Simulated scan of single mutants.
Amino acid sequence: MPTGTAIRAVREQLFAAAERILLRAGPSALTSRAVTTEAGCAKGVLHRHFEDFDAFLAAFVLDRVGRMDAQAAALRESAGSGAVVDRLADALTALFGSVAVAVVALVTYRDELRARLRHDWPAGVPVLTEAVDMIAAYLTAERDLGRIAADADIDTLAPTLIGTAHLLHADRGSAPPDAAALRRMVATVLANVVS
């Protein structure tokens, strides 16, 4: 088997284990021992592929951010079809139903991880800044099609939608908001700009 394939398989096995732990128990439960145990491999495997645990976590976060590209492209391509509010509510549900909220908690929980991420991600919090870009690109496409007011302040609307959706989803102890509540929030934020 080519070396690159084996490395990718091990990395994905470790990333999948980290994601399961993060979703199940939160950032405080993420340790190298927990990840390798969850992945079913020896602890040395993680350290053979990554400089240290924070390097692993940085690679994990960037990998999960990279997975948002397909969702962003699909949302952008949907411009001009369906109701804008419904498209955004669905996109936000998918985004915050993923590992996104947990990754944000992980980044804020670990100082060393934030410091490492600054090399590849100089501003903002990975996932949230990517999500803002995704929403802004969609809103821009809808504005270009005349379905959103020409003077809509997309640079304010996109982070407002992401920030509010994050607040609605951030409570790990409660169920996520229902679809009606999320749709109501999107409709309220966009009330003055949707045609």
Rank of each mutant, 00 (worst) to 15 (best):
A72M: 05
A59R: 13
L30F: 02
F53M: 05
S81A: 09
A29W: 10
E38P: 02
V61G: 00
D86E: 12
D52H: 11
D90W: 05
A25T: 14
S78K: 06
G97Y: 12
A58I: 04
A79C: 10
R33M: 11
L88I: 03
A70C: 10
C41Y: 07
V45R: 05
G66D: 10
A25S: 15
L22E: 09
T36Y: 00
Q71R: 13
P27C: 03
D54Q: 09
T37D: 07
G26L: 03
L75E: 01
L46N: 00
E38K: 09
R87T: 00
E51L: 12
L75A: 00
A83M: 11
L22W: 05
R76A: 07
G44T: 00
L57I: 06
A39Q: 03
D63N: 15
G26D: 03
A55K: 05
R48P: 06
A34F: 01
D54M: 12
E38M: 11
L23T: 08
G44N: 01
R33H: 13
V35P: 07
T36D: 00
R76Y: 03
G97S: 12
H47W: 08
I21A: 05
L88W: 00
L46V: 03
A59G: 15
D69Q: 15
A74S: 14
G26A: 04
R64T: 06
T93S: 11
L62S: 11
A55F: 05
A25V: 12
S78E: 03
D90M: 08
G97C: 10
T31C: 08
L57N: 07
L95F: 09
H49V: 14
T31I: 06
A79S: 12
A91D: 01
A42Y: 06
T93N: 07
D69F: 11
R33Y: 11
A59L: 13
P27D: 10
A79Y: 01
L88N: 00
S81I: 06
R24I: 11
A29L: 06
L30P: 01
V65C: 13
L95C: 10
A83N: 14
A73Q: 15
D63W: 15
A58N: 03
F60C: 08
P27Q: 09
A42R: 05
V65D: 09
D63E: 15
A42Q: 08
L23E: 14
L92Y: 04
V45S: 07
L22R: 04
G40R: 07
L46Q: 00
R64Q: 14
D86T: 12
T36N: 04
F53N: 02
F96A: 01
R33K: 13
A42I: 07
L46C: 04
A55D: 13
R87L: 00
V65P: 01
S28K: 09
F60T: 00
A42E: 12
T93V: 13
A34S: 13
A55Q: 08
L75C: 01
H47K: 02
A83V: 11
L22H: 05
E77S: 11
D52V: 12
R87W: 02
A91N: 02
L95G: 04
V61C: 07
D86R: 03
E51V: 06
V84N: 01
R48N: 14
D90S: 13
V35D: 03
L75I: 02
F56E: 01
R64C: 05
D90I: 13
R24K: 14
T36V: 09
R48V: 05
R48E: 10
L75R: 03
D90P: 04
Q71L: 12
S28L: 08
S78H: 07
H49S: 13
L95V: 08
